[in-house]
Lab assay of single mutants.
Amino acid sequence: NRHQFAPGTFSGVLQCLVCDKTLLGKESLQCSNCNANVHKGCKDAAPACT
């Protein structure tokens, strides 16, 4: 399954699913299917969408 990433819209601090570093809103993407949160630069390394 493929992620459907869109710019993240969340408040607070989240961790990137891929690199475990802190996500800030402006550099984040969120999958509309599984709600995975990743950095824009990490999206290609994200595991399959669940």
Rank of each mutant, 00 (worst) to 15 (best):
P7V: 05
V18N: 07
N1W: 05
S32L: 07
H39N: 01
H39W: 00
T50F: 15
S11N: 15
N35H: 06
D44K: 08
C19P: 00
K26L: 12
C16H: 01
C16S: 01
N37I: 06
L24N: 15
V38L: 10
C19F: 00
H3S: 05
A45H: 13
L14D: 12
L17G: 09
G41E: 15
L23E: 15
S32N: 12
A45V: 12
P47S: 14
N1G: 08
D20N: 06
T9C: 09
Q30H: 08
C31A: 01
E27V: 02
K21W: 03
G12T: 04
H3N: 08
G8T: 06
V18A: 08
T50V: 07
Q4Y: 12
Q30E: 11
K43Y: 09
K40S: 15
Q30I: 04
A48V: 07
C42K: 04
A36T: 11
L17V: 07
G41P: 11
A45R: 10
L23D: 10
G41V: 11
R2M: 15
A45Q: 13
A46R: 09
P47M: 10
N37G: 11
N33E: 11
V38C: 15
K43A: 10
N35K: 15
N33W: 07
Q4C: 11
L17T: 11
A36M: 10
T22M: 08
A46Y: 04
H39K: 02
V13Y: 11
C19H: 00
K26I: 13
A6L: 15
A6H: 10
K43H: 05
K40Y: 12
C19M: 00
C31I: 00
Q30A: 10
A6C: 14
H39R: 01
D44P: 12
E27W: 02
T50N: 05
G25I: 06
L23I: 06
C31S: 01
C49D: 09
C16A: 00
L29Q: 04
H3V: 02
C16I: 00
K43Q: 09
Q15S: 05
V13E: 15
N35P: 05
C34K: 01
C34D: 00
A36C: 11
S28M: 13
V38Y: 04
N33T: 09
G12N: 04
L14E: 10
Q15Y: 08
N37A: 07
V18T: 04
N37T: 14
C16E: 03
C34E: 01
A36L: 08
R2Y: 15
H39M: 01
C49M: 03
H39L: 01
G25D: 14
L17R: 11
F10R: 08
L24S: 14
T50S: 11
C34Y: 01
A6P: 02
G8P: 14
A48H: 05
N1V: 05
G12R: 02
G12K: 05
R2H: 09
A36G: 10
H3Q: 02
L14A: 13
A46F: 08
T9I: 09
H39S: 02
K21R: 05
L14F: 14
F5Y: 05
N37C: 09
R2E: 02
K21G: 08
A46D: 06
A46Q: 09
P47T: 10
Q30F: 06
L23F: 03
K21M: 08
T22I: 04
K26M: 10
F5M: 11
K43E: 14
A45C: 11
G41D: 13
K40C: 14
A48I: 13
P7Y: 04
K40T: 14
Q15T: 09
V38I: 11
G8M: 06
L17E: 04
T22S: 10
V13N: 15
Q15F: 05
K21V: 09
H3L: 01
N33D: 12
G41L: 12
Q15D: 12
D44N: 11
L23V: 12
S32A: 12
N37L: 10
C31E: 02
K40L: 13
C34H: 01
S32V: 09
N35S: 11
C42A: 02
C16L: 00
E27A: 02
E27C: 02
G41Y: 06
T9V: 07
A36Q: 13
L29S: 09
T50P: 05
G8C: 07
L17D: 03
A6T: 10
K26V: 12
L14M: 12
G8E: 06
L24D: 15
N35W: 04
G12D: 14
R2N: 15
V18R: 08
D20Q: 07
H39E: 03
A48D: 13
D20T: 12
E27S: 03
F10I: 09
A48N: 12
C49S: 05
S11I: 06
K43D: 14
V38A: 07
N37D: 06
C16G: 01
L14R: 08
Q15N: 15
P7E: 08
N37K: 06
A36V: 14
R2D: 05
D20H: 05
Q4P: 06
K43G: 11
Q4F: 14
L24R: 06
Q4T: 13
N1Q: 00
N33A: 12
R2L: 08
V18W: 03
P7W: 02
K21S: 08
V13P: 14
S28Y: 05
P7S: 07
C16M: 00
C31H: 01
L23M: 08
G12A: 05
T50M: 05
L23G: 13
P7A: 09
L29A: 09
L29V: 10
V13G: 10
D20R: 06
Q15K: 15
L29R: 04
K21H: 06
T22Q: 15
L17K: 14
S11E: 15
A6S: 13
N35Y: 04
K40N: 13
V38R: 02
H3E: 04
G25H: 11
C19Q: 00
G41Q: 09
S32H: 08
K43R: 10
L29G: 03
T9M: 07
V13S: 15
H3I: 04
C31T: 02
S28F: 07
S28K: 02
N1M: 14
V18M: 06
R2V: 02
H39C: 12
N1F: 12
D20W: 04
C16F: 00
F10T: 13
A48P: 15
V38N: 02
L14N: 03
Q4D: 07
F5R: 02
C42P: 00
N33P: 07
V38S: 05
E27L: 02
N1T: 13
N1D: 11
V13I: 14
Q4L: 08
F5E: 01
F5D: 03
L24H: 15
N37Y: 09
L14K: 11
K21F: 05
K21Q: 15
H39G: 03
V13L: 14
L24K: 07
Q15R: 13
C19R: 00
T22V: 11
E27K: 00
Q30C: 10
H3P: 01
N1Y: 14
K40V: 13
C49Q: 01
D20L: 08
K26F: 07
C49P: 03
N35V: 05
A48S: 10
L29F: 10
G25M: 12
C19A: 00
D44T: 13
C19V: 00
L14I: 14
V18I: 09
